[in-house]
Structure formats: structure tokens, C-alpha cells
Design a protein around this nucleic acid. Structure first.
Lengths: 121, 121
DNA sequence: TTATTTATTAGGAATGATTACTATTTAATA
DNA sequence: TATTAAATAGTAATCATTCCTAATAAATAA
């Protein structure tokens, strides 16, 4: 893969935050550095970076959010402030359980807990 | 809420299958009974039926699928045949665990196991 | 039964995130 | 320095879903 300044900036931006930004947010930020960067370029490079395992994606409603946390993990989603909070993957034992109960080979587990985060107590 | 024949047909259709159909699929089926039924009507009534607790939704990639299973449950998603398989909710203890660990009040847990179902062994 | 009122519908336009397309630019390398 | 193929900018297209509005129909009152 050829070097691209755009890709470098995009990766820097994703790594600069834990807010699980959207492509549009990343595009806005990137325009501060490269004023003519296009949204298509942002999407394409985010896809490439995901394939390279340098970033991860989370589906949040009908928007994809990007996450610099490359460890396998899941999310708490606060319905009040919309924050996504990373949590370590629940129990590898679940995979084994699903295998024995349903004869289903699990590659990936996607868990989102929806509720109210500690800010709103 | 006022009676509507369209809504009745739509509910019948969702209840007639365990394939987690999309709005478009339901619309096609409904047109067999009511040839001029509009897609907007299908979407609106699916939303109403969900609010009434008569059906549930599952998000599958960027499509919403509808499910007549009204019990709380989660899904196995086969990456080969795209089938969604209902499974009972994993462990209420997870809610308590998240509460104590993260001080996060869980309303709803969304779990999808992605992998290969028993058909492809 | 008929008239009234207001929820519901059909049909089509609008939205919004994402992807596709294409001429131009630019990194790599010969 | 010239060549070439990957990457980009800019824009059009896609596709699920929502929104809008005049017409229709269910519920109710007269």
C-alpha cells in the first residue's frame, strides 16, 4: 500500500479521541489540516485502516463509528448522553456455550448494553 | 388506536414467518392481499406494532428486520447463509455485573454472535 | 341511517449515510 | 527525469427509511 498523507492524518485523528467519532466528524477534523480532503477519501481510508486492523468500527443506530481501540471489546451505550463506553469482551466461555448448545461456530461477538451511564445518577 | 385492515395484514405477515423479514419483504407479501398498499404504510404500522410490543426489531447491517418473537432474546447470525437464529437472552447476571463494575443501569442487552451455523458443518 | 371528525392511507418527494465513478494528482521506481 | 499505477477530489448514485399532503375511511354523534 502506497503512502498517503490523507491516510496518515485520518489515522491520527481516530487515535486522538475515545469518543467513537463518525466519518463526518473525522472529515471535519481532517479539513482543518487538508482543506480539500474529500469525504470519499475519508471513508475509503477508514475502510483500509479497518482492514489493516489499525482501527475498529462500531455500529450505532444507522451510523458507523470508528474506534482506535484495537482490542476485542464491547460497548455500553448511554441512552441519555449517547456516549459509547468500551468494556472488555464478556467471557470467552460464551462462544463455547453457543457451540455446544446450537452447534454454531462463533467468530465474533457483538454486545451492546443500552442504558444509563454513571453521569446521570 | 383505530382499526386498520392494512395493520392487521402486516401483523399477520410478520407472525407467519421466523425468517426475520425486512420491511420490503413484508411490503411485497402485503401487496398480494392489498395491491395498492404503500411502503410508507408498512413502515408506519411496523413501528406502531413495535411500540405496542406485538413485534420486535433486529438490526442486521444497515437493514431493520422484524420478528414476531416478543420474548426478550438475542441472535446468532450466520455469515454464510445470513440466517438469524433466535436464542434466549444470556444471563440476567450480566446486567448486575455491568451495574457493579461500571455503575451503568442496563435497560436492554443487544447481543449478536456472528459465525457459522450448523448447516455448514 | 347519515353527517362529522380525525386517524390512516397512497403515492411520491426528501433525507442522510455510504458507495461508486472519473478525471486529475501524486507516490514509487525505473 | 519519465513512467505508471494507486490515491484523491468532487460529484453523482444508491438505498433504507422518513416525511409530506391530498384523499380515504373508521369511529362517533346527530
Amino acid at each position: 500500500m502506497r503512502y498517503s498523507y490523507q491516510r496518515e492524518i485520518i489515522l491520527d485523528i481516530v487515535r486522538s479521541t475515545k469518543t467513537h467519532p463518525t466519518a463526518e466528524w473525522i472529515h471535519n477534523k481532517a479539513q482543518k489540516k487538508i482543506k480539500a480532503i474529500s469525504l470519499g477519501t475519508v471513508y475509503r481510508n477508514l475502510g483500509l485502516l479497518e482492514n489493516l486492523g489499525k482501527i475498529q468500527t462500531v455500529k450505532d443506530n444507522n451510523v458507523v463509528r470508528y474506534d482506535c481501540n484495537t482490542e476485542p471489546h464491547n460497548h455500553l451505550k448511554c441512552k441519555i448522553c449517547d456516549t459509547l463506553i468500551d468494556i472488555p469482551v464478556a467471557n470467552e466461555a460464551m462462544k463455547k456455550n453457543v457451540k455446544t448448545k446450537y452447534n454454531f461456530d462463533v467468530d465474533d461477538i457483538n454486545i451492546t448494553f443500552i442504558g444509563t451511564c454513571s453521569k446521570h445518577n
